[in-house]
C-alpha cells in the first residue's frame, strides 16, 4: 500500500529525514518509535503533505501513485489521514461545520454520493459512539477549550468519518490519561480492517498495549535504525533509547 524509498526531507536547511525506507501493506499496523527529535513527527507531516518541508531525495508511492506530487487535500481524498499531534484550534469553525464539506469532497472524489444533512447526521451519530464524543463538543469551535483527551478523540472521530485507507497517528497518546488512551485506542482498533493500514508514531510503549503493532521501527537521527516485532517496543520500554543510539553510532563509525 505504501512504499517509502530513501526519503530525505529538510526544513530551513536542516536535514531531518536522512533516508527512510518503509513498506506498509494492507491490514498492517506499524509503530514508529524513537527519542525526541529523531524525526518521527517530520515523517508523519511529510506523508500528510505539510509544505514547510523540502524533499531532497527519495519517493513515496501510495497505492501506485506518487504521494509527494499531491497537495494535502488530494492525499486526504486518496485515503491518507493524519491525526495531528497538536490539533489546531480554529475559532468560529465547528467540527460538524467543516467535516460535512470535507466528507462530501472526499466522497465525491471516490465516486460516492454526497451525504445530505440528515444522512450526515446519522453517520455522525454512529461514529460518535466509537470515541464516546458528545455532539455538543462537535458544534463548538474546533478544539477551542477542548481538553487534551477531547482533542485526540475528535481526531479519531474525524478519522472514522473520513474512512481513510492509511491512518497516521502522530503521538496521539501523548498527554492522555489511561481512560482517554483506552477510548482512543479502542476507536482506532474498531476502525481497523484488512484493507486499511495504520502507522502509529509514538514515544511511549504504553500505547502499543492497546494498539498492537505488527512491526516496530526505531527512528534515530532521521533513519530507521532498527525494526522488529512488538517485543522490540517492550525492550525499548525496559532499556530506554541509549543502547539504540550507541548501536547506531558505532555502526556509522
Amino acid at each position: 500500500m505504501l512504499t517509502i524509498k530513501n526519503l530525505h526531507a529538510s526544513i530551513e536547511g536542516n536535514e531531518i529525514l536522512r533516508g527512510i525506507n518503509l513498506e506498509v501493506k494492507a491490514g498492517e499496523v506499524h509503530a514508529i518509535m524513537g527519542p525526541n527529535g529523531s524525526g518521527k513527527s517530520t515523517l508523519a507531516s511529510v506523508l500528510a503533505g505539510r509544505e514547510e518541508y523540502e524533499i531532497s531525495e527519495g519517493e513515496v508511492i501510495f497505492q501506485g501513485k506518487d504521494l509527494l506530487e499531491m497537495a494535502p487535500e488530494e492525499r486526504a481524498r486518496e485515503g491518507v489521514f493524519l491525526a495531528f499531534q497538536y490539533p489546531v484550534e480554529i475559532p468560529g469553525v465547528s467540527t460538524t461545520n467543516f467535516l460535512r464539506t470535507a466528507v462530501n469532497q472526499v466522497r465525491e472524489y471516490r465516486g460516492k454520493e454526497a451525504l445530505d444533512a440528515v444522512k450526515f447526521l446519522s453517520v455522525m451519530k454512529e461514529k460518535m459512539k466509537l470515541v464516546e464524543i458528545d455532539q455538543k463538543l462537535l458544534s463548538r469551535s474546533l478544539n477551542e477549550g477542548f481538553s487534551g483527551g477531547e482533542k485526540k478523540r475528535n481526531e479519531i472521530f474525524q478519522m472514522a468519518m473520513l474512512e481513510p485507507t492509511l491512518s497516521i497517528l502522530d503521538e496521539t497518546d501523548s498527554g492522555l490519561d489511561i481512560d482517554a488512551l483506552r477510548i482512543v485506542s479502542s476507536g482506532v482498533n474498531k476502525l481497523k480492517t484488512p484493507q486499511t493500514a495504520t502507522i502509529v508514531v509514538t514515544h511511549y510503549q504504553r500505547l502499543l498495549d492497546y494498539i498492537v503493532p505488527d512491526y516496530v521501527h526505531v527512528l534515530y537521527n532521521g533513519k530507521i535504525v532498527k525494526s522488529g516485532s512488538k517485543e522490540l517496543a517492550l525492550e525499548l520500554e525496559e532499556k530506554g533509547y541509549d543502547w539504540i543510539k550507541e548501536e547506531a553510532e558505532s555502526a556509522s563509525v
Binding site: 503533505g49 494535502p72 495531528f84 469532497q105 473520513l162
Partner: peptide
C-alpha cells in the same frame, strides 16, 4: 497551520481559506 489542518481533511485550499476567513468575519 489551520489551513493545512483543513486541507489534510480533504478541503481544497481555496475552500479552506474561504472557510477560515468566513469564520474570522463571522464573529
Amino acid at each position: 497551520e489551520a489551513l493545512f489542518y483543513l486541507q489534510a481533511r480533504g478541503l481544497g485550499k481555496e475552500q479552506a481559506k474561504g472557510l477560515l476567513l468566513y469564520a474570522f468575519a463571522g464573529e
